[in-house]
Design a binder for these strands. Structure first.
Length: 875
DNA sequence: AACCACACGC
DNA sequence: GACGTACGTGTGGTTA
């Protein structure tokens, strides 16, 4: 068996983890982010690399042999933050529990230990993997040694093989040292040659091979300035190279055989993880350890005849369905836990029982559930209308922290310290192996879940009160789940004949385009393969390469559009892509999921997913049906009312996010613009370009629109530059001018960032929260991203609050007025209904009225609507 | 099965 | 001195 050695640069990884993750605390107030990140990284490495041998190297003292060469080495470095220093003992302890060797050596750095051991390992025929956050280590890369450098965070890595280095820099691994010698390294305070950066260094090395050879042939170097610098700083360059060179002959006493990895001591790890509060990592450990020690016997009663005695005023009620998609899925079992006891109800018993149905439909009997909508919809398929589901643990958890994404009840329970439930994956298995276990195992699992629901409710409800979010939960999200359940259950009717015809037409057009493309390319290939397409375009046809992805040439639409004038094939490919997308995602996609008997599609709205509070839609996603291009928009002709002589009625908020911004920021100009119902993009163009209304050109309006878009979505200057195809500098200037134009907005942006820093979170008009720990990050990008998030979330999130409120109000109004009209879909700022012809006149009044009055802002909300025989016509 | 590149909506 | 840049869903290709 081949031998595999993993060498980890301990200090570097700890640093990376510390700066990449927010400052987590465990219960005792000890900082744990670096330990957590380190652990995640270790778990990943152990799983992916399956090393036979492993070692973590640490830097020893402050000074090393390099300081003799250059006393300023690593000078000017900020000292290690105490929040990080205090975590090193835990990392050491963690490694001990993992049974992983650690090593440090007086006068040497971790680099040198790794360099020495990897050389030894090469001689002994090991395959070696080096893990670090420091690119210097790439000089160790060889055909036996691969160097992984963390890119962002701790788990995203870049793999440096000699080939990759060649591709990236055009250099051999050894030449990396020469490069450092020439360009220096600010972080280690290695001076290099002033004025020589990466580009110049690479150029010189490609020409002369090494620093020494370069110095021998200095007279041949082109460029007087460069030559002078090289002459002047020759000695400094040579010293820099020496500093950057990893010592591969360090006096190490440990032997490779001592590094053998024999596996972790799971019990120690479990104990440590618990102390550190790493509950989410616990179940990644060997499952028997965590679960056998955690779970004591759960006493429950299996119910074969339902009688009144098993119900109470407040009940934990768990409805189990194994499939992801709960429409038409089989219910697997039920559990009820209340003051009278713990009960497991087999499906057959429950569904055949009148008493059970009566209880489920009894509003006054309160149920604490996990995923109310899921439970409601699946019960409705059995003729049961679930009522009294007043506390949904999944929704409560989401409201408390929308950025967490627990994937089952056990995960939520664990977050709150309840370790009495196993994960669904552990009980049911995953992927192809997912199945219903034997009944006693199933029963116990379900009863545990119902049990923990009751415990969680108490905890979560208190947290909601503490955060002033109880109203958001009980008056918005809970009632909304009922509205959404109705929408999903109702479904949307498709004209499948129409869909089929469109599919036929597209199919023949695709075939034509394909023929043309093959002719133009001079050969046949898979147009859908970016890899093959790249070879054709950029190698065979020799088109200029504008952008590369990490796997090869980029062939994305924005790249291709720039090549359109260079070759006729481009236009055809763009066409092919467009039609192919319609065919595969929309025509075939919808056909795959439509109910063959009713011709309806039943999407699922995920109410507990996005960090901003928006909904999402899956199977099918009905929130991304084409509209921008006419070709695709026609897909909407296949969305029709489910009853004869009904119509589709669509109503959308006009500029809801910018109106929300006007309100939150209290910007007078923006408020004024909306009160006067101005075209906001034209208005913005007038302000940003300092022109009158008449002088606004379409291009100015387009730019202004993109800036408004950027504000709403929190994009960066880079993002804006991409969407407008302008330089980043220009984009930055646009944003600046925008903020000058609307000083109230500028003030809001500054305040909200400050506020987020102080509180650690931002919130929406209806108290939806989003925590933004990265706001204090030292890493510029991480922090910038966090700042944009802080600015954007209250805007987008409040808009989401408002439309959710409108949905609830709308459902209530339709009920009150006894209308047959049904709400079918929500697409972030619009609501889509199906309605009988004879209700249209009333809807024209009611819908805008309800939507516009969902909330009271400093500016009016404006709703546009339209209707027609298909969704397409409702435009 | 997991990952990527790409494309659709807001 | 570089980082890598609204979000979410689904598809086909590729690789493991």
């Amino acid at each position: 068996m081949s031998k595999k050695l993993v060498l980890i640069d301990g200090n570097s990884i700890a640093y990376r983890a510390f700066f990449a993750l927010p400052l987590l605390n465990n219960e005792k107030g000890i900082h744990t982010n670096a330990v957590y990140g380190f652990t995640m990284m270790l778990m990943k490495i152990l799983e992916e690399e399956k090393p036979t041998h492993i070692l973590v190297a640490f830097d020893a003292g402050k000074t090393t042999f390099r300081h003799k060469t250059f006393s300023e080495y690593k000078g000017g470095r900020q000292k290690t933050p105490p929040e990080l220093s205090e975590q090193f003992p835990f990392i050491r302890e963690l490694l001990t529990a993992y049974g992983i060797a650690q090593y440090e050596l007086e006068n040497y750095e971790a680099d040198d230990i790794i360099g020495t051991l990897s050389l030894l390992a090469e001689k002994e025929g090991f395959d070696t993997k080096v893990i670090s956050g420091d690119k210097d280590l790439t000089q160790l890369s060889s055909d036996k040694t691969i160097v992984n450098i963390t890119r962002k965070g701790i788990t995203d890595i870049e793999e440096y093989t000699p080939d990759h280095i060649k591709e990236k820099y055009g250099l051999t691994p050894i030449q990396i040292i020469d490069m450092k010698g020439l360009m220096g390294d600010a972080s280690d305070n290695i001076p290099g040659v002033p004025g020589v950066g990466e580009k110049t260094a690479i150029k010189l090395l490609k020409e002369y091979g090494s620093l020494e050879k370069l110095m021998e042939s200095l007279d041949q170097v082109s460029g007087k300035k460069l030559k002078d610098k090289l002459v002047e700083f020759k000695d400094q360059a040579i010293m820099s190279k020496e500093l950057a060179t990893i010592n591969r002959q360090a006096p190490i006493v440990i032997e490779l055989s001592e590094l053998e990895y024999e596996g972790a001591e799971n019990e120690k790890l479990v104990k440590m993880f618990k102390e550190l509060g790493f509950n989410s990592l616990l179940d990644k450990l060997d499952t028997d350890v965590t679960e056998t020690i955690e779970l004591e016997d759960m006493k429950y009663k299996q119910i074969d005849t339902v009688d009144q005695d098993i119900f109470a005023k407040e009940n934990g009620f768990y409805v189990e369905i194994l499939e992801d998609n709960y429409h038409y899925a089989d219910i697997v079992g039920f559990a009820i836990v209340n003051e009278t006891g713990h009960y497991y109800l087999p499906v057959k018993t429950a569904l055949a029982s009148e008493a059970f149905k009566k209880w489920a439909e009894d509003e006054s009997s309160q149920k604490i559930v996990y995923d109310a909508k899921r439970s409601e919809v699946s019960l409705r398929h059995h003729g049961i209308h679930l009522k009294g589901a007043e506390f949904d643990v999944a929704l409560a958890s989401y409201i408390l922290n929308p950025s967490e994404s627990p994937d089952d009840l056990a995960a939520i329970a664990r977050q709150h310290g309840f370790l009495i439930v196993q994960s669904d994956e552990a009980v049911f298995g995953k992927g192809a192996k997912r199945k219903i276990p034997e009944e006693t195992k199933l029963a116990e699992h379900l009863v545990r879940k119902a049990d923990v629901l009751v415990a969680l409710k108490e905890k979560l409800e208190q947290d909601l009160w503490d955060n002033d979010q109880h109203d958001l939960f009980s008056s918005l999200e809970m009632p909304l789940s009922l509205v959404l359940a109705d929408m999903e259950y109702q479904g949307v009717k498709l004209d499948t004949v129409r869909l089929e015809n469109m599919g036929e037409e597209i199919k023949s057009r695709l075939a034509e385009i394909e023929t043309k493309i093959f002719e133009l390319a001079g050969e046949q290939f898979n147009i859908n393969s970016p890899k093959q397409l790249g070879v054709i375009l950029f190698e065979k046809l020799g088109l200029p390469v504008a952008k590369k992805t990490k796997t090869g040439f980029s062939t994305s639409a924005d790249v291709l559009e720039k090549l359109a004038s260079k070759h006729k094939i481009i236009e055809e490919i763009l066409n092919y892509r467009q039609l192919g997308k319609l065919q595969s995602t929309y025509i075939e996609g919808l056909q795959k999921i439509v109910n063959k008997e009713t011709n309806k599609v039943h999407t699922r709205f995920n109410q507990a997913l996005t960090a901003t509070g928006r909904l999402s839609s899956t199977d099918p996603n009905l929130q991304n049906i084409p509209i921008r291009l006419e070709e695709g928009r026609k897909i909407r002709q296949a969305f029709v009312p489910s009853e004869k002589d009904w119509v589709i009625f669509a109503a959308d908020y006009s500029q809801i996010e910018l109106r929300v911004l006007a309100h939150i920021a209290g910007d007078e100009k923006l408020i004024d613009a909306f009160r006067n119902d101005m075209d906001i993009h034209t208005k913005t163009a007038m302000e940003v370009f300092h022109v009158g209304k008449e002088e606004v050109t379409s291009n100015m309006r387009r730019h202004a629109k993109a800036v408004n878009f950027g504000i709403v979505y929190g994009i960066s200057d880079y993002g804006l530059s991409q969407s407008l195809n302008i330089s980043r500098k220009e984009a930055g200037e646009f944003i600046e001018r925008y903020l000058e134009s609307y000083p109230g907005v500028k003030e809001y942006m500054d305040e909200i960032v400050k506020d987020a820093k102080a509180k650690g979170y931002v919130q929406t008009l209806l108290h939806r929260r989003r925590y933004i720990p990265e706001i204090t990050a030292r890493n510029f990008n991480l922090r910038s991203f966090a700042e944009r998030t802080a600015m954007n979330t209250p805007i987008q999130g409040s808009a989401a609050d408002i439309i959710k409120k409108a949905m609830i109000d709308m459902a209530e109004r339709l009920r009150e007025e006894g209308l047959k009209t049904r709400l079918l879909l929500q697409v972030h700022d619009e609501l889509i209904f199906e309605a009988p012809q004879n209700e249209i006149e009333r809807l024209k009044k009611i819908v805008p009225e309800v939507m516009e009055n969902a909330i009271d802002l400093k500016v009016p909300l404006k709703v546009d609507f339209s209707y027609g025989p298909t969704w397409y016509d409702a435009k």
